[in-house]
Write a protein that binds this DNA or RNA. Structure first.
Lengths: 177, 177
DNA sequence: AATAATTATTATGTCTCATAAATATATGCG
DNA sequence: CGCATATATTTATGAGACATAATAATTATT
């Protein structure tokens, strides 16, 4: 029987699947592995945050507000890459639970300043510790050095795109200055 | 004024937020960086797959079916960590588009064997190449060695959890054999 | 003063993932 | 055999995160 050209070096697929499953083209892709690892860490963070009545994006917002008192919803949304309409409901919930305050600016009454309350600050610190612990559980296999290197590699990916969206081939117009 | 205990070494938050935004407790967390990088790669993969009328999970399924002819929906779902009810709609779509065939097993008529069609195989190979190219665009900043190391680190995270769900502290009963 | 731009919001839709319940078939046991 | 139990698939449904269009309030610009 003529073998279809196989673009992989791994063992040839057998006629009917046995109990071991081979991975397709996906295992060699970084994005696939990224997602699998992300699922693990996200589930851990989610479970830890849940104990404080927070979801992960909500905690992220709280965390940035803690660190940037007086930040506006717009700036917060842009920084966390959240669409502003989606941020509204998060901020609403944080305010309702009295974890942050939302005060209208006097110089520009369209804008609001977000500041954390004492209660919010306390909850944040506790949640942050719990999430860090949960993460550490997942990262036992990695030494501190590995961990730092991983973060560095991830940041390279994140930043590469925001700086140079396309390169060399396949764009029509001349590059903007 | 008494400074609240700050659990970070970075610059102290200024009264009202300037144009630079500081990151909270989150930037030091692996999960956060993981997500940011994942968003970049996933968007690239998604855009590439879209040209072939595929979404990322659909492509992943197709890819595993290509590599494991005759695999059952259950095995496929378990392998990709997709819930079976969600896999149904994906398989439905793949079958409707005649990219795969779904044949009932004679020995056990509850089960189905999934096999790729010629058309599906062709589409898969083209899409895989496009997605790989799109990924490569995102990974220009990383050498081949960095890339391999990244995948290795990610796999460690993924596997650490499936092997040793909890460690040492905080579980009540004795470990199963 | 009139127009345009900005901030925040409301309404709405999509995508991914998760759970409960229903159906069809197979297996084990009296 | 007949009945309870288990498994594979499917249907229905909901939650969570993300995205876009339209609106309201305010400010900036002409």
């Amino acid at each position: 029987m003529p073998r279809a050209r196989s673009n992989s070096t791994a063992p040839t697929p057998s006629a009917s699947s046995p109990d071991t499953v081979f991975e397709g083209a996906i295992r060699g892709m970084v994005g696939y592995n990224l997602k699998r690892a992300y699922i693990v860490l996200h589930a851990a963070a989610r479970a830890a945050a849940e104990d404080f009545g927070l979801r992960v994006p909500t905690f992220s917002c709280l965390s940035v507000i803690v660190r940037n008192p007086g930040i506006t919803p717009s700036a917060l949304a842009e920084h966390l890459k959240i669409e502003r309409p989606n941020l509204v409901v998060i901020v609403d919930e944080l305010e309702t639970r009295e974890l942050i305050r939302r005060t209208q600016m006097k110089t520009d009454r369209r804008r609001y300043e977000l500041t954390v309350t004492v209660r919010g600050r306390r909850l944040h610190d506790q949640a942050a510790e719990a999430i860090r612990d949960a993460e550490a559980q997942c990262l036992q296999g990695l030494g501190a050095e590995d961990q730092a290197r991983l973060i560095d590699l991830l940041n390279k990916i994140e930043n590469a795109m925001t700086e140079a969206p396309v390169s060399a081939a396949e764009h029509t117009g001349p590059p903007p200055p």
